[in-house]
Design a protein around this nucleic acid. Sequence first.
DNA 1: GTAAATCATGCAATCGATTGCACATTTTCG
DNA 2: CGAAAATGTGCAATCGATTGCATGATTTAC
Lengths: 342, 342
Amino acid sequence: MQKKRITLKDIARETGVHVSTVSRALDPVERKTITEEVAKKIQAAAESLGYRPNRIAAGLRTNRTMTVGVMIPDITNVIFPPILRGIESVLEPLGYASIIVNTDSERDREIRLLDVLRDRGVDGIIHAAVLRSDPSIASAAQDGLPVVTLNRKVEDSDIPYVINDEDAGICQMLRHLRELGHTRIAHIAGPQDLSTGQLRLAAFRRAAEDLDTEVDENLIVVATRFDEQEGARCLIELLASGKTFTAVLCANDRLALGAIEVLRERGIDCPRQVSVTGFNDMPFLDLIRPKLTTVRIQQHGAGRAAAEILLRLLNGETADDVDIETILPVELVIRESTAPCP
Amino acid sequence: MQKKRITLKDIARETGVHVSTVSRALDPVERKTITEEVAKKIQAAAESLGYRPNRIAAGLRTNRTMTVGVMIPDITNVIFPPILRGIESVLEPLGYASIIVNTDSERDREIRLLDVLRDRGVDGIIHAAVLRSDPSIASAAQDGLPVVTLNRKVEDSDIPYVINDEDAGICQMLRHLRELGHTRIAHIAGPQDLSTGQLRLAAFRRAAEDLDTEVDENLIVVATRFDEQEGARCLIELLASGKTFTAVLCANDRLALGAIEVLRERGIDCPRQVSVTGFNDMPFLDLIRPKLTTVRIQQHGAGRAAAEILLRLLNGETADDVDIETILPVELVIRESTAPCP
DNA sequence: GTAAATCATGCAATCGATTGCACATTTTCG
DNA sequence: CGAAAATGTGCAATCGATTGCATGATTTAC
């Protein structure tokens, strides 16, 4: 049914040369070994027949498919689409395509989907996982498959990784709150089995120490998911504890939005009575009132950076040649959800 | 460098049979032609060696890659991620992977990316484009490549398509506004070169006729993009025209949000003075005040439906066997941005 | 003017899995 | 018991492109 594709053989027949000659004439590197005139003729024939190389066949022979795998937890999480576009902006112009899979942060899925990618002979993988450990991707890298991780460092490996400077972000935010006069600062932390959750909590503690702010352990509540519902629950828990606080530094925007919602319901004015901050600067934030003060992380930029590193690996550079660590700067975005301590 | 993959040949050597026998033992369909005992042994060997079939090689031979292409305008547009998950929810369990490309609604990109997909031998394509016409995808379908379009019907072709019942949605929304007593109803239409923009405007006119509502052409403003900025611009234009209106039916949520923003700035109360409605029911809408009354379309469901149809095409059913048209029901979601006519 | 070097092209193997056909062995049945 | 049928396995071609090597033609060099 499918209309027959034009192959090298067709061009060879058409031009009266051998397929290997055709192959060479069409390969920019090998072309120079062919008479100019013949090459021209072959190219013309290829063009007029509408030849398109069969990457499957080439891939079988060369072991390069010009396809990369991208593993993310969940594409419906707004932070990932910009990352994907960032990756694409680097790889697509060079002829790479991306197979994207959602792991839902489940280890089983991750293992299975990794196989899905390897079975298809992807040339490399960008892994934007969030689980704090996973041996499968490490072992894939061990086998020689180029891998770059995003948002997370794989311990004890020489897999290059790209992360945002979360430490600096949390620290800047805490300093911002301190400068506004807040001293009783609560933290709604993210899930501790996710690297961002854990990282940001650790950063919060460190930042507090750096800024000589005492950390009241009762003012730290850990969410089980990064969503509004959990943000709400955590804030209710904070209120119920009876401990006073004038600011809440949340581990991400959605937690903050949930928290603000509860404050509103209880008639507590944000930012007049309690300041709330987020992290990530997700899209549409400026449509939600009060506009959230947050930390902007580079999403597109992170994707781009990861893709650029992967590219170097694909071109034969080893993990020794590239920087193992890429830390992207973040930016404090002060909007309306923070105000001086009452 | 890359650790050698186990191939059929390795298993054959290990078990002392021919590769073709191994191949058959590992193929659930062919397995029955092999002695039970031999098959068991081969499977055990495959298992213990950690064999993974090379889909590239199989794909070359069989012309099936178990990979599909998905073309969307822009993954950062919040309506697409759920569609992708919907597609994935059907195809992934069956062993399919998806190559996703962003066309940015540019014809050149679309043509190029279609080739990117075909070069990689995708078994089929789900095309969630928005341009009102494009010959390339039609010609691909003509060549026998299974194609399903989403959100748009390709004229003069037998390509199956999945759409949401936009007509019904617009009509229900208009009826809702009429029931609230509104008679002077403006429409902020989407870009007319995008199918949704055009479709919804046509639906608005039709619905008005059905409901015996006069359409004041001066109360129809066409946006050039589907975003808040354009929504704002269009509302300003409406206000400037001097024509009175008590409700604005917008072609999508973002236009509506932009419009509401302008109303707020001008001190016009929504919904007390002017009702505003959206379309799509995008995520996070319930975090934005006033909560937008809108039409919920099935995103995940649309992806699922498209994938199911594609699957039938992949399994050899022709366009004659499957329904060319799938129209998914929409749902009116009444929130806070609409109120009785003042 | 001939040997050597250079160049353009063809040949054939290869990547790994699939599959039609042939062959050998076993089973069935008259 | 012998021929026919059924069964299990091997052989080899195939998918399309790539590439090391061989070959023949041409140029260069002495």
